[in-house]
C-alpha cells in the first residue's frame, strides 16, 4: 500500500514539474518563430580603386521590418563611405543630410 502511494506521489510531482516548465519554454519558441533576421549587402567603389564592403544583419518582429532595417543600415554605411571621400552619394541611396548624418 505504501509503495503504491509513493508511486502515485512520484507521478504527481513529475507532472507538475513538466507542466510548470513547459509553459515558458513553449512561449520562448513562439517568440523566436515570430522573429525574422535579414541581411543586406552593399559595395561602394571609391576613388583610386578603393572598395568598401558593407553587410548589415538585423532582426525584427516581422521580416519586412528586418529587411527594411538591414537595407537602411547598409545604405547609411555606404553613405558614410561615399562621404568619407568628400563625394555626394547618389539620390537613390536616400542618405540623410550631412548635418543629420553627423549628429544622428
Amino acid at each position: 500500500m505504501k509503495k503504491v502511494l509513493i508511486f502515485f506521489m512520484a507521478i504527481a510531482v513529475s507532472s507538475f514539474a513538466f507542466a510548470s516548465s513547459e509553459t515558458p519554454w513553449t512561449n520562448s519558441i513562439l517568440k523566436s518563430v515570430s522573429k525574422c533576421t535579414a541581411t543586406a549587402y552593399g559595395t561602394y567603389y571609391g576613388p583610386g580603386g578603393n572598395e568598401t564592403d558593407v553587410s548589415c544583419t538585423k532582426t525584427a518582429s516581422s521580416c519586412a521590418q528586418a529587411q527594411a532595417d538591414a537595407a537602411n543600415c547598409r545604405d547609411l554605411n555606404v553613405c558614410n563611405a561615399v562621404r568619407s571621400f568628400g563625394l555626394e552619394p547618389s539620390p537613390t541611396l536616400n542618405c540623410p543630410k550631412v548635418s543629420e548624418f553627423e549628429n544622428p
Binding site: 572598395e51 568598401t52 564592403d53 558593407v54 537602411n72 543600415c73 547609411l76 544622428p104
Partner: peptide, 29 residues
Amino acid sequence: KDKARREADPNCLDCGEGVTVRYTFIENL
C-alpha cells in the same frame, strides 16, 4: 573616428553586432 562613433552610440541605425564594414584596396596602400 568610425569606431569612436559606433562606441558612443551602439544603438545607432548603422551600428550593432551584425554590422561589418570592410575596406579593400586594389593597390597595397
